[in-house]
Design a protein around this nucleic acid. Sequence first.
RNA 1: CGCCGGGUAGAGCAGUGGCAGCUCGCGGGGCUCAUAAUCCCGAGGUCGGGGGUUCGAAUCCCCCCCCGGCAACCA
Length: 477
Amino acid sequence: MSKKFYITTPIYYVNDKPHIGHAYTTIAADVLARYHRQKGDDVFFLTGTDEHGAKVAESAQKAGLVPQEFCDQTSALFRDAFKNLNISNDYYIRTTDKRHQLTVQKFLQKVYDHGDIYEGVYEGLYCVGCEKFLTEKELVDGLCPDHKAAPQQVKEKNYFFKLKKYLPKVQELISEDIIKILPANKKNEVLGLFRQGLEDFSVSREKVTWGIPLPFDKKQNTYVWVDALQNYISAIGYGDDETAFTKWWPADVHLMAREIIKFHAIFWPALLLAAGLETPKIIYAHGFFSLDGKKMSKSLGNVIDPNELVKKFGVDATRYLLLTQFPFGQDGDIKESLFAEKYNADLANNLGNLVSRVLNMVEKYCAGQSDREVASPILLDGISQAIESLQFEQALKQVREALTSANLLIDQTKPWDLAKEPAKKKELDKLLAGLVSFLYDIATALLPFMPSTSEKIMGYLSSARIIKGEPLFKRIT
RNA sequence: CGCCGGGUAGAGCAGUGGCAGCUCGCGGGGCUCAUAAUCCCGAGGUCGGGGGUUCGAAUCCCCCCCCGGCAACCA
């Protein structure tokens, strides 16, 4: 019986265009999804877009669109970007989907009936011009930066979730790794949040018009985070398709960037407990990019569009380059100028050229005939282990090292000399068969990372008459 | 004392107790199957600073300096 594997990315807020950070998380999730499929697991891989909230409504207005149209447009940008990156998600959820909205209402009703949502008062600084609450941080000299006006202290009726009631339980689940938070330093960070103290949080907004109405008070809309988190259960049929839901839930991995870990590690499990559901197994928070030492931000104008990378390097190289910049769990700096360098060194020279030289020799010296041997468990096991612990750069490093040693082996054994002596034909055949098998293993290992390249290599090697073919990665000059 | 990262060769980064490594770049050499690719040798490091633990520290502990991020609604 095959194991089920349910993996998610965060759903991306449509207030922004897809950038390299979105691509990074989604590619990583895709690698895991493809790896598990390759292993024979039954995989459900979810990604999508988060579309409600005041900011979206505001952006829509600026764009001269009604919110739904605006969301349709931006959500499509994400969908296209992921298609470009060869992302193999099984479902693409949008929080404006009818099915999702119904789920959110069912879920909240359940929590409400359970007595864990109560009426309270939200107090904050409200800017009439923006028609929304501002945080202290957003203010400039105590004024709204857009309207140059002092915000008013305003109270509104809100519904609150009894987070505090569930904190001890959630803390226990995290401490005991029932909810496993990775990497380990992120677990410590989350446990630190418990020590600093956490308050009940508001699950609704009275003045935000673009959202899902609360089932028990239609005048209020669901707070966007509460809405968003539930994508993980609505996508697999909570309250709608019990068979599917039972099959997939709980999630095996929620993958995300580190800035949203609190919502996933604390708020989300607490809400799930209140609704009587299981908590996710692993919450993995990866690092952030900085670009040339600067924080990636729209105002600095240093945001990289993943579509541009794909145009320049191709899909597989883009996937490879993003995952090999720095260890997955940490933050790291990247320089766009180094991409081409790494592309040439690792992909064109090391991998691409090795494939070329092997294929060419088989074509020339063996009339395109070569037998393949069985896979080498040592190489593949090491790589599997690295992938399962989400050490993608480690996995790819092992591939790189293997390629280097194969290049060395060719130089040492000099097949071109063997080819000159008919007496050594057998030795030559055996050598090349070994290399062909080796490349097949490499292609197997690379399948989750670079699916098209991997298939291309396998195709070349499996052909009845092996020929040199086209270079896998052309050098960039 | 707010919390969390980071500071390792010219550049970019691995490495969490046992001779300091990888990629690029640089200098020299080899090979010719291959995408001017590949392979070998070499130069280049007080592992931010100081103190401590240890037979042994980039790695563990303490103090300090510098850089970045987070600090309740930021996807």
